[in-house]
Amino acid sequence: MRKTAAALTALCLAATPLAAQSDAFHAGPVFTEFGQIADVTTTMPIPGDASFAVAFDTSTRADAGEINRTLNSAARFINMHVAAGVPRENIRVAVVVHGQASLDLTRPAFYAARQDGADNANAPAIAALLANNVQIILCGQTAAYYEIGVADLLPGVDMALSAMTAHALLQQDGFTVNPF
């Protein structure tokens, strides 16, 4: 019985978003509506002259009414590093999207037509990310597969020839790929 209760507790925690598990998470200095962060005592200091150029990659679509987890992670990356003292201008972030996540980048009418009339909760997050110089890039091969045209994308979202092309170009520009 005790093992069953422990297993059930572990399962519930695993299914609960991290921010809901602890009061330690709070709004960050750049994005206040998403990308929550926790204050952490570290033993690995960030150099004062640190700069980051990080590309995130996702093919996992958000549930209707939810923000795509990778978009949230990009905001969290910026929030936690600015909070840790890295100047915002020293942080470059891009999000490369392909596969089913492509729908998360579409205009309200296009999204609603494919999500039983639901609002695209990603639209405000994408607008906020773009306003903070985050590049949002859709794989053109995925767009062709899902019949998404440039006109179907939220304003400011770029269309690349492919996700592979986008990553290759970003790497040539000094970006590393974040594995999370």
Rank of each mutant, 00 (worst) to 15 (best):
residue 115 Q to N: 15
residue 2 R to W: 01
residue 178 N to C: 12
residue 173 D to R: 11
residue 62 A to W: 07
residue 169 L to V: 08
residue 121 A to L: 06
residue 62 A to S: 15
residue 139 C to W: 11
residue 163 A to H: 03
residue 72 N to S: 07
residue 70 T to E: 06
residue 101 A to V: 05
residue 98 H to R: 15
residue 72 N to P: 01
residue 47 P to S: 09
residue 8 L to A: 14
residue 11 L to D: 12
residue 52 F to G: 02
residue 17 P to Q: 08
residue 83 A to R: 00
residue 87 P to E: 15
residue 18 L to H: 00
residue 72 N to V: 06
residue 25 F to L: 10
residue 6 A to P: 02
residue 130 L to I: 08
residue 133 N to K: 09
residue 7 A to N: 11
residue 6 A to M: 12
residue 99 G to W: 06
residue 177 V to L: 15
residue 159 M to I: 15
residue 141 Q to L: 11
residue 111 Y to N: 02
residue 46 I to W: 05
residue 24 A to K: 05
residue 8 L to P: 02
residue 105 L to H: 02
residue 78 I to K: 00
residue 18 L to E: 04
residue 127 A to V: 07
residue 23 D to R: 14
residue 143 A to F: 04
residue 178 N to W: 13
residue 41 T to F: 14
residue 35 G to R: 01
residue 168 A to P: 05
residue 145 Y to R: 11
residue 21 Q to A: 08
residue 112 A to F: 10
residue 59 S to L: 09
residue 137 I to S: 00
residue 84 A to I: 13
residue 3 K to S: 10
residue 77 F to L: 03
residue 130 L to M: 01
residue 14 A to L: 14
residue 49 D to P: 04
residue 3 K to E: 10
residue 134 V to E: 00
residue 45 P to A: 15
residue 170 L to C: 08
residue 68 N to K: 01
residue 112 A to G: 14
residue 145 Y to H: 10
residue 152 D to S: 08
residue 55 A to G: 04
residue 122 N to L: 03
residue 104 D to Y: 10
residue 35 G to C: 07
residue 173 D to Q: 14
residue 119 D to V: 06
residue 140 G to K: 10
residue 58 T to C: 05
residue 164 M to K: 10
residue 148 I to G: 03
residue 32 T to K: 14
residue 22 S to M: 02
residue 166 A to W: 00
residue 113 A to G: 15
residue 71 L to M: 09
residue 74 A to Q: 01
residue 167 H to Q: 15
residue 66 E to M: 09
residue 119 D to H: 03
residue 8 L to F: 12
residue 75 A to G: 07
residue 20 A to Y: 05
residue 149 G to I: 11
residue 39 D to F: 06
residue 180 F to S: 13
residue 176 T to I: 13
residue 122 N to H: 05
residue 63 D to M: 08
residue 26 H to R: 15
residue 5 A to E: 12
residue 174 G to A: 05
residue 51 S to I: 02
residue 146 Y to A: 08
residue 79 N to M: 07
residue 114 R to S: 09
residue 154 L to Y: 07
residue 105 L to C: 12
residue 125 A to C: 07
residue 59 S to E: 10
residue 29 P to K: 12
residue 165 T to Y: 09
residue 88 R to Q: 12
residue 54 V to N: 02
residue 106 T to G: 06
residue 52 F to R: 05
residue 87 P to W: 13
residue 116 D to A: 15
residue 152 D to V: 06
residue 136 I to S: 00
residue 38 A to K: 02
residue 13 L to Q: 13
residue 65 G to V: 07
residue 97 V to F: 13
residue 28 G to A: 11
residue 74 A to L: 02
residue 12 C to P: 01
residue 161 L to D: 10
residue 52 F to K: 00
residue 88 R to W: 03
residue 39 D to Y: 11
residue 93 V to R: 00
residue 154 L to G: 01
residue 9 T to C: 10
residue 14 A to H: 14
residue 170 L to T: 08
residue 32 T to A: 14
residue 40 V to P: 09
residue 103 L to R: 07
residue 143 A to E: 04
residue 55 A to C: 12
